[in-house]
Design a protein around this nucleic acid. Structure first.
Lengths: 382, 382
DNA sequence: CTGTTAGCGCATTCAA
DNA sequence: TTGAATGCGCTAACAG
């Protein structure tokens, strides 16, 4: 037995399909008697609207395509997706989900697939190739880019990385740190990609804040380098550990470190742990993103990118563009903010070597009863 | 100017729409001459197939719905999604993405939405309510459950948690550990949910392996407790820290700890760090999932759940069920496997108190040159 | 207030 | 080998 159609319900209720459609959508005039009959028929027939037919007729799918790249093992993209889904759901929209694996060709394929499906809008969770964005735009589809704006004709949701990184650096400076290391990388992806400006902006903030303090930039405090995607995860973890070791060797006077991402910070903390260097007692460290930060030991002070909001705003923006039926190319800024946890503490002495700054540790004995742990030394709380 | 339709192409090529359709899909007889003319027209007209119309006509959308719950800040679900997308893409399927927020009512809504859209299959990334799965099944849609099977009439992809946890425990035992703590929780979600069997299975493995060693189960070694979802993240992190502190107080003789999840393990490691207890030199710890494990300091030994595979298999299963047009209720098992990293090391002495077992730490001095770090004491490598 | 009608764009039967 | 015709299920004029 086939699925019930509008026509079947109509027959059952003894009215026309138009009337059924009207009660279904609550528009047009319907007499109380007819409405009742239809509602009864609706109940008896286990009817379910065929959205495909509706879409064809109305010439719009209430659907937004979402293109992303790589995996979701990094919560960054995951939260964006959830935010987008949330906004979409609130407006009755549904999300079509495609992965282009960071590949321009596949990205193009994804756009084509989406256009064939006649989605109303596309969100690029970081577009790889601006041309693909225009492809969507040219087809009359609203497009929103997240994080990076490759196509000026499209709308975008971005964060001011320079401002955010400045906040991170100011936090360290306000704790008295002056000898601050930078753990970063200039190229986020493959070098054929010209938009390496996000890490670059974070670095500029590092430099600017330091210079504002009257410090001269010391190259031995900076480790940058192109790093590839690591197997089984996002790039940065192993680089972070390697860079940190390098920094330890070449800049013994450091009291704090700014890492371009939580991932790099996590790698750095692994190196520090192996060296037996205590955070933040011997060295402060701050990250960026707030992805893994909560989970590290000790919990990482970092700059939180409002990932959920970015997704939410992107979808909202797309939906409003769809509603007003205008291309529109506005840029929405999201604010990243400092989250102080337990890896940053006041600098005690400037320029003193780590080993001299820290009293020899007492041999630790296990505490013998339950109770609150000793609070981490000097860590500020937000 | 409206979008080009089949009819426009046909007119341009001087043939009928049927012919165009035939060359588009490469079926039926088409003369070489006609084919050429159509292909030329196709190029000139920037025609794009309208998938919505196609779906209506063919009575099938090449689409699978994916329902998940909560956020994606935990990479676990994220990787499942990516795996599913991958399998779907390989078969020309597309993924519709919905979030039911762990709520049975919303889950039902999601199923309804999907049914209205006439998707061909549904994947429940952990169903919340078995009834919702049958709802899909009753509508003639293929359904696959991941991780937990709530509806026997549906297919499922699961892992054998008892076997996996057994592997974890055996690893600790093989390192000489006997005084092993358990950090867990009996109820993963709200207590109205009867399927608390996953953590329970992990606990059973803990108990079974210990008993097989001739150990008597010591309640002071076990901390279980219902924990709620934490704000801004998955439940378990803070519980892990609290539980670990409790364990430290009530079971001083412990040499190793088995945590039900990486998240709990991460919390535990935060507590240990605050206490100044070294991992694995003073205490070994093993997790479960392999979500955050890589990022912790030191990198956590854990049981890796094949999340990508689970998603991949689920989508493949759904697609094959769709293809053979049979409901089918098979269960596919995925194997979780031990990943040895750096938090587990041989037990040195049994039953000795931590403080007595470990030599007082030397005051650490910073290493002065680059080079490899000292390798973590006694950590096995896989 | 309600029914009839005419497609939305495509795939497919059937006849030529 | 090709074209004409039909209808997938629904909505929106329009006529009554």
């Amino acid at each position: 037995m086939r699925e019930a159609r509008l026509k079947d319900v109509a027959a059952l209720a003894g009215v026309s399909t138009a009337t059924v459609s009207r009660v279904l959508h609550g528009n047009g005039y319907v007499s109380a008697r007819a409405r009742e009959r239809v509602e009864a028929a609706l109940r008896d027939s286990s009817y379910r609207l065929n959205a495909v037919a509706q879409e064809l007729r109305r010439q719009k799918t209430i659907t937004i395509g979402l293109i992303l790249h790589g995996d979701l093992s990094n919560p960054f993209v995951g939260e964006i997706v959830i935010g987008a889904e949330q906004a979409a759901a609130e407006h009755g929209f549904t999300l079509l989900f495609l992965n282009a694996h960071g590949n321009p060709g596949q990205e193009r394929e994804c756009v084509e697939t989406l256009l064939k499906r006649r989605i109303d809008g596309i969100i690029f969770t970081t577009a790889v190739h601006g041309k693909n964005v225009s492809l969507a735009l040219d087809a009359g589809v609203r497009a929103v880019e997240i994080e990076r704006r490759l196509c000026v004709a499209a709308s975008a949701v971005v964060v001011d990385n320079h401002a955010a990184a400045t906040e991170a650096m100011r936090h360290l400076v306000s704790l008295g740190h002056r000898e601050i290391g930078f753990l970063g990388e200039p190229f986020p992806h493959d070098s054929d990609n010209d938009s390496a400006d996000i890490p670059k902006e974070r670095f500029r903030a590092y430099r600017d804040v330091l210079e504002a303090c009257g410090q001269v930039l010391d190259n031995s405090h900076i480790v940058l380098g192109h790093y590839p995607r690591e197997r089984g995860g996002w790039g940065g973890l192993e680089a972070g550990a390697a860079y940190m070791r390098r920094l330890l060797g070449q800049a013994p006077g450091l009291t704090a470190v700014f890492a371009v991402s939580d991932l790099v910070a996590a790698g750095a903390m692994q190196a520090l742990y192996a060296e037996g260097i205590r955070v933040p007692e011997q060295l402060s460290i701050i990250g960026f993103d707030d992805t893994f930060a909560r989970y590290l030991a000790p919990p990482l002070t970092t700059i939180r990118q409002p990932m959920f909001d970015m997704g939410y705003k992107a979808a909202s923006l797309a939906i409003s563009l769809i509603a007003e039926d205008a291309p529109g190319s506005s840029v929405e800024f999201c604010q990243a903010r400092l989250v102080i946890r337990e890896t940053t503490a006041p600098a005690r002495a400037t320029g003193a070597d780590l080993a001299l700054r820290t009293a020899p540790e007492e041999p630790r004995t296990r505490r013998t009863g339950p109770g609150p742990p000793p609070s981490p030394a000097g860590a500020g709380r937000s």
